[in-house]
């Protein structure tokens, strides 16, 4: 599903955030990206969703080379992706319902279809009773569930999650992981950056370890 060939990313001359990364993630796979802060986990995710361009190397997504994807085509690529951030990045002036509906509005889906789908996903994440609330009226865990619902509402091919449980307590972390597991079971490929070793032990999956911008290990349970 995702193929990275000899990817190098340098933000400054002679200072690589990522060096010579080659990685294949199969369709329907669940992969943890782990490593200490500054190892390059977030940068790797940004390269996959075209928020950054690699300095060298090629990236293929579902067989398509996205390395030099023209900027005007990036939105169309992202419509097949679900992205979850540590800091949620919700639209705080919109209700929970509107937040989850937004990716579908962007795709020009019909109103009735949007309502049905959003309600269904909010039910999945247990927030159907909160749909008229605004994000800032919710707890951190609930906000992250809204963010997950927003990512899943489009039935993404790939879900990219950057430390999605970093700010959450253990119970909420479990809930979020159950949601990811569910999405993965439905066929969504998941790449999740985390440095939570306990979490990886609890939900064992393939682990790609990064250290100083290089792949230091790649293990499967």
């Amino acid at each position: 599903m995702i193929q990275l060939f000899n990817i190098t990313k340098a933000f400054q001359r002679d200072q690589n955030a990522l060096s010579d990364i080659t990685l294949r993630v199969a369709k329907g796979e669940f992969v943890y990206l782990t490593g200490p802060s500054g190892a390059g986990k977030s940068t790797l995710l940004k390269l996959i969703c075209c928020a950054e361009r690699p300095t060298r190397g090629q990236i293929l997504m579902d067989g398509r080379n996205i390395t030099q994807l023209p900027t005007r085509h990036i939105p169309h690529l992202r419509r097949n992706l679900g992205i979850v951030f540590q800091d949620f990045k919700l639209l705080n002036r919109r209700t929970v319902f509107e937040n989850v509906a937004f990716p579908l509005e962007v795709q020009g889906r019909r109103r009735i279809e949007i309502s049905k789908k959003v309600y269904q996903v909010l039910k999945q994440v247990g927030l159907e009773h909160r749909l008229s609330h605004h994000p800032l009226q919710l707890s951190g865990g609930e906000q992250q569930r809204v963010a997950v619902a927003r990512a899943l509402v489009v039935d993404p091919l790939v879900l990219l999650a950057d430390e999605p449980t970093g700010n959450l307590d253990p119970d909420v972390t479990m809930e979020i992981m159950e949601m990811f597991k569910g999405a993965n079971a439905r066929g969504t490929t998941i790449v999740m950056a985390t440095h939570d070793r306990g979490l990886i032990r609890q939900f064992p999956r393939r682990v790609v370890s990064l250290e100083a911008g290089r792949i230091a290990g790649d293990s499967r349970p």
């Binding site: 939105p75 169309h76 992202r78 992205i83 919700l90 639209l91 937004f102 962007v106 489009v154």
Partner: peptide, 16 residues
Amino acid sequence: QDELEAMTMVGATALF
């Protein structure tokens, strides 16, 4: 700015 960034991440086009 955060809102604009979130919009770009869910596939909204520049015109949208």
